[in-house]
Design a protein around this nucleic acid. Structure first.
Length: 420
DNA sequence: TCTGGGGTCCTAGGACCC
DNA sequence: TCTGGGGTCCTAGGACCC
């Protein structure tokens, strides 16, 4: 029988900030999303103040001020680098690792003796190596490991490590009954609501539901969740990330943007970002979509322009993709609107092996692939943005609001922490 | 003064064709 | 005159996650 572990960093972004600001020990910390829009991470102290996740920041600003909450803009260069280090440490504790998100990974701990002390060694290693607190949840399916991680996090008596097999089946069911069905992995707000109407309220209710009935009412994915709750693993550990089927890069502006050149520069920027991801997974895209929209929270003049263009030769070449994107942008741009958000999406993604020849257009220049590889290498080694398209522009006026960003302590020499 | 994230996959429904 | 099925492709919107 297999055993999965889910390890995640507690309040990861907030913890990353605290590593470099020991003066904030014991103080509530929150981290905001891009553009300082919503609260995306909260330290334990901030949660205790009752600050909910994903609320627009301005709605809790007063509260934060009153309780001297340390507020940070998100610093993805820092979190990404800390994540890489954490995953590196964790990889030593299992033969297989699946990096699931920036702050969590699954480990295959099947057959490892004494999972209790193994779990504590994992926590200890990350704490010593990075100063980030973690929790470890273990179970015979990924869904159970996820839920075990909740137990480890919420029940202090387990000291941050929990495995379902430590309980008798009766005790395990009693614990499952204490979790609302919406806390199960894959059950969001809508499905939780529908389940509640079917008189399925807790994780235990869902575990004991008739899988055929669930499949009929929902789909095969939900049926799998029921099986996973019963300890039958349906989801394998994916140690190599499957290639993405679509890649999106989009962002809202710090203020409304009216003129075409600024929109055009932002689209170029998104193309460069998405194409870099596309090349990183060794694929080409056959379809590119461009989207620009007004602010949906405003009253007047709503417009969402979207169009997608097929590419004659599927490509991962930033310049070619950008050429198509700019044409698409010109097609959807309406001068009478002010825009709030712009983005691009790459679709029809596949490997470059199969390439349709087009009779009337020349084949892509092979030298360009080398150019792209060189750009990627420079940006990897010297920080993203070292080399970029001229079309992305030098002006930053449309870029994000990040009033409270911490230094890039670990990725920029001029911003390393100083000890006085 | 005004403030509202970003990314991925899935699916229902429409358009079109035979 | 009006009706009939089934498949494919595309897209907007839904749902989930962190």
């Amino acid at each position: 029988m297999s055993t999965f572990a889910l390890v995640d960093g507690n309040s990861f972004y907030a913890s990353c900030e605290r590593v470099f600001r020991p003066d904030l020990l014991g103080r509530p910390i929150i981290v905001l999303s891009n553009n300082d829009g919503c609260v995306v991470a909260r330290s334990a102290e901030a949660k205790a103040l009752g600050i909910p996740a994903f609320l627009p920041f301005y709605q809790v600003q007063q509260l934060c001020h009153k309780h001297r909450v340390a507020v940070f803009s998100s610093n993805y260069a820092l979190y990404g680098d800390m994540s890489r280090r954490m995953m590196n440490v964790l990889s030593r504790f299992a033969p297989q690792q699946e990096i699931y998100s920036i702050d969590e990974c699954f480990l295959d701990v099947t057959g490892i003796p004494d999972l209790d002390s193994h779990g504590h060694r994992i926590r200890q290693a990350v704490w010593q190596g990075l100063g980030i607190p973690t929790c470890v949840g273990m179970g015979s399916s990924k869904t159970l490991a996820k839920l075990a991680n909740h137990v480890a996090k919420k029940r202090p008596e387990w000291n941050g490590v929990f495995e379902w097999d430590w309980l008798t089946p009766r005790e395990a069911d009693r614990l499952l009954a204490e979790f609302a069905v919406g806390e199960v992995w894959g059950i969001g707000r809508r499905i939780a609501h529908k389940l509640t109407q079917m008189n399925i309220h807790s994780a235990l209710d869902l575990k004991q539901a008739d899988p055929r009935h669930i499949k009929r009412k929902f789909n095969v994915v939900m049926e799998r969740t029921v099986a996973e709750l019963n300890g039958a693993p349906c989801l394998a550990l994916e140690d190599v990330a499957p290639a993405k089927q679509q890649i999106i890069s989009s962002r809202s502006f710090s203020r409304l943007v009216r003129n075409l050149p600024a929109l055009s520069a932002s689209i170029s920027h998104h193309v460069a970002r998405a194409a870099e991801k596309l090349r990183a997974q060794g694929c080409v895209a056959g379809l590119l979509g461009v989207s620009i929209r007004t602010n949906p929270f405003r009253e007047l003049g709503q417009y969402h322009g979207y169009t997608c263009v097929p590419l004659i030769h599927p490509s991962a070449d930033t310049l070619l993709l950008n050429h198509a994107a700019q044409a698409a942008l010109r097609a959807i741009w309406r001068p009478e609107f002010s825009y709030h958000k712009a983005g691009i999406i790459l679709m029809d993604i596949g490997t470059p092996a199969i390439q349709q020849r087009d009779l009337f257009s020349p084949l892509p220049d092979p030298k360009r692939a080398k150019l792209m590889a060189a750009i990627d290498k420079l940006n990897r080694n010297f920080g993203s943005g070292t080399v970029k398209l001229g079309a992305e522009g030098l002006s930053e006026d449309w870029r994000m609001r990040q009033d409270k960003k911490s230094p890039c302590y670990t990725t920029r020499v001029d911003e390393v922490a100083r000890v006085k």
